[in-house]
């Protein structure tokens, strides 16, 4: 699928500052709010946190995919961000997470929401690809790396 349709320059970040799980989720939602992608910050954050409470989205090898469903968004909102220092995200392998993929999708509306998440996960399935992503210095570089293909 075409990631360009969902990811834009103002939704990919190389410099997350937060150093806790809750902090990461809040920071990403804040940045999405600042980028004008979402209007109801609280509702979105609540959806993401609720999903996280059911089961951590910290996967393996430093990847986390916090996501949620809420009608506070009208269509899929997504972001990809890095915190190169690593943050404890209750991941499956216990390792700190460095790559964060967030999606917020509307509850009722149909669309390739999980498929987007799956596609990004597939792209960074290989260690070499993750290294390339982590080596990105600017928002531009991430954007190009993910949507260039």
């Amino acid at each position: 699928m075409n990631l360009k349709k969902v990811l834009s320059l103002d939704t990919v970040w190389v410099d997350l500052k937060a150093d806790t799980k809750q902090g990461i989720m809040e920071e990403m939602v804040d940045r999405l709010t600042a980028a004008g992608k979402i209007s109801d910050r609280e509702a979105v954050l609540q959806a993401v946190v609720e999903r996280e409470e059911k089961m951590s989205t910290g996967m393996q090898n430093g990847v986390a995919i916090p996501h949620g469903k809420t009608d506070a968004v009208k269509s899929l909102v997504a972001a990809v961000a890095l915190n190169k220092a690593g943050v404890d995200f209750d991941s499956m392998d216990g390792e700190p997470c460095t790559i964060f993929i967030m999606t917020i999708s509307p509850l009722k509306r149909r669309g390739p929401h999980m498929q987007f998440l799956a596609e990004v996960s597939r792209l960074i399935g290989q260690a070499s690809e993750r290294e390339k992503l982590l080596a990105c210095q600017t928002h531009n570089e991430i954007h190009e790396l993910l949507t260039g293909k």
Binding site: R51, K54, M55, M114, A118, S121, R122
Partner: peptide
Amino acid sequence: QANQHVARMILLEELLSLS
């Protein structure tokens, strides 16, 4: 193999919705 991510993720979400 190439499509297993999406299948697994959607399965997981549905399992979680059971809770």
